[in-house]
Nucleic acid binder design. Structure first.
Length: 554
RNA sequence: GCGCCUGUAGCUCAGCUGGAUAGAGCAACGGACUUCUAAUCCGUAGGUCGUAGGUUCGAAUCCUACCAGGCGUACCA
């Protein structure tokens, strides 16, 4: 939409240049934005101010020159004004907006899409929680943000894939297997000691019970080395199954589940080390193998193979990210908890060592979630196994409210998630406010049908009957949607969608209380229904990006 | 010590990558349901944008220093 405005101004600039009134040494970048106050106009440009220096004229004089050269004979432009220090304020015609609005409505579910992504291949990796226990609320935020981001980036024209990286190798897995084995022995009456650093959650006992149900006492007398591999696999598979289920209940799916183990099986990890060694980025010291990450802005060098010969987590991560790039992704996005932020510089160092531009790699840090209940902090402790799992939270407040709460704030701000507020169906809870608007609109359509008013988007409706200022305020807000999606995609900021919808919907609630949609004036009724149809589509598409449902009745 | 994030109304937060008089919701106060869903709407009040400098036509936004809170700074993952 702003493109059209940009062209009008650029055209005027060119004419001014041809007339010799402006120098315009290099073609200026025309920025068009919405004025703060809608009364000032529909669009504004600060071009006169940015040109002030190079033209050596005061902004107002430049604005006057441009204004004179703007083509006012067209059907799209109503008026041009110069305001403040030199803003050009443009008011567009009713036709300008209505033409665009009908285009938008016709796009239906596709409304909001754009092509800023230009089909760029992106991989977004998120959640990637270790399969050692159920997902907790912090993972929930990552899941909601990652999933919504994926939907937004697709809408903005990227070729996007989602991925979950499974850390199914290493010491944590051994401890998991051992924990399960010990619980197994315990359940069968053996008097065993359960170490502090083992997984103490109830779910481990459930898995041990499962082993008993399936295999009885088969592992009771066997030595540890023979048992742990079995229990490791059993526990991992079982927990992973639970994670997949929790995510699917939370409306989060992945295109690919990538196993760390597979990187060892196909020798990618060895290969990556050797490759880096060949490039001189790796050296041996104190019996360990180090990556010279300090050469690429990391604080210090990092161990990739321990003295014991075991590879570090970081080591397989190197191979993993090499693998991602080899698969042809031009941009790689990782979501991580903010407590992992120390990890960012070394990961960027690896990519540079491998000869890639570090800008193809973007780590999004998701800040902490504090769980509250009626203003009181809920204690969370992973070690003791007592914590609010994602599925507990979802069961309590519902998927829609949970997702909305995770997505309503900028992900680099701490989030207070209050269980009481999230499930309250009051104005304190914006998710219902937005859903309510949708339900209201649907209710109006039902009412129209009952009155025998035939509405179909195809029939000729006289939209010029929409003359109320509030109606245009809604239309203009609807038309801003694709741009919101675009900006949200470029900034990787999901919360913009929820703020946008809140603003959009509040315009509707105000309009609703002052104007009746259904009346005896059938043409006007149809025109207003058409407006609401467009609004309904926008709400639905917006919530779809957030993975939130739009009820037709509440 | 060093690094990352945050600091805007009593509370929870926006502020569209530097623009016009800093905006919402909640809480407070006052109004609106015989009319398409009151889970709603309308109005009043509420501010040294953490502090101090700097950059320029113009700063909540960019730079520097400081203050406060959170997180990190492993041959853990």
């Amino acid at each position: 939409m702003k493109k059209a405005i940009k062209e009008i101004i650029e055209c005027a600039l060119n004419k001014a240049k041809d007339a010799g009134e402006l120098e315009l040494a290099d073609a200026p970048d025309v920025v068009v934005e919405k004025p703060k106050d809608e009364k000032m106009g529909d669009f504004a440009s600060n071009i006169a101010m940015t040109l002030a220096r190079s033209e050596r004229k005061n902004p107002k004089a430049i604005a006057q020159i441009i204004e004179r050269h703007i083509d006012k004979g067209t059907a799209v432009l109503d008026s041009v004004e110069i305001a403040g220090p030199g803003f050009l304020n443009l008011k567009m015609s009713q036709k300008f907006f209505l033409d665009r609005f009908t285009d938008a409505v016709e796009k239906r579910n596709d409304f909001g899409e754009s092509n800023v992504g230009q089909g760029t291949k992106i991989l977004i990796e998120f959640v990637s929680a270790n399969p050692t226990g159920p997902l907790h609320i912090g993972h929930g935020r990552g899941a909601a943000v990652g999933d919504a981001l994926a939907r937004i980036l697709k809408k903005a024209g990227y070729d996007l894939k989602t991925e979950y990286y499974i850390n199914d190798v290493g010491n944590q897995m051994n401890i998991l297997g051992r924990s399960t084995w010990l619980r197994y022995l315990e359940l069968l009456g053996s008097d065993t000691e359960f170490p502090e650093d083992h997984y103490r959650g109830e779910y481990i006992k459930d898995i041990a019970q499962l082993a008993i149900d399936q295999h009885g006492k088969e592992f009771f007398d066997k030595p540890e080395e023979e048992c742990v591999p079995f229990f490791k696999k059993l526990a991992k598979d079982n927990i992973l199954e639970g994670i997949k289920e929790d995510l699917s209940d939370f409306r989060v799916t992945f295109d690919n589940w990538f196993s760390e183990q597979s990187l060892y099986e196909d020798n990618s990890v060895e290969g990556a080390i050797e490759w880096l060694r060949g490039k001189g980025h790796v050296y041996d010291k104190d019996g360990a193998v180090w990556l010279k990450s300090s050469a690429f802005d990391d604080d210090k060098d990092r161990v990739i193979v321990k003295q014991t010969g075991e590879k570090t987590y970081f080591c397989s991560d190197i191979a993993y990210h090499q693998n991602k790039i080899k698969r042809g992704f031009k941009k790689i996005i990782n979501l991580m908890g903010a407590d992992h932020h120390g990890y960012v510089p070394r990961m960027e160092a690896v990519l540079q060592a491998m000869g890639y531009d570090k800008n193809i790699f973007k780590i999004l840090l998701i800040q902490f979630v504090s769980l509250l209940r009626g203003g009181e902090k809920v204690a969370m402790s992973t070690r003791s196994g007592e914590f609010e799992t994602l599925s507990d939270v979802v069961n309590e407040v519902g998927v829609d409210a949970a997702r909305y709460y995770f997505l309503m704030r900028s992900s680099d701000a701490h989030l207070d998630f209050d269980l009481e507020l999230a499930k309250q169906e009051t104005s304190e809870n914006p998710v219902f406010y937005i859903q309510y608007a949708h339900a209201r609109i649907c209710s109006i359509f039902r009412g129209a049908e009952e009155k025998g008013i035939q509405f179909s988007g195809n029939e000729s409706i006289d939209l010029s009957l929409l003359v109320e200022e509030e109606e245009f305020s809604i239309i203009k807000a609807i038309l801003a949607f694709p741009e919101v999606v675009e900006k949200s995609a470029l900034a990787l900021e999901v919360h913009r969608i929820s703020h946008y919808l809140l603003d959009l919907v509040s315009r509707f609630h105000g309009y609703y209380s002052r104007h009746r949609v259904i009346s005896d004036d059938v043409p006007l009724t149809l025109a207003r229904l058409y407006l609401l149809d467009g609004l309904r589509i926008t709400i639905r598409n917006g919530f779809d990006l957030m993975g939130i449902s739009v009820p037709e009745k509440m």
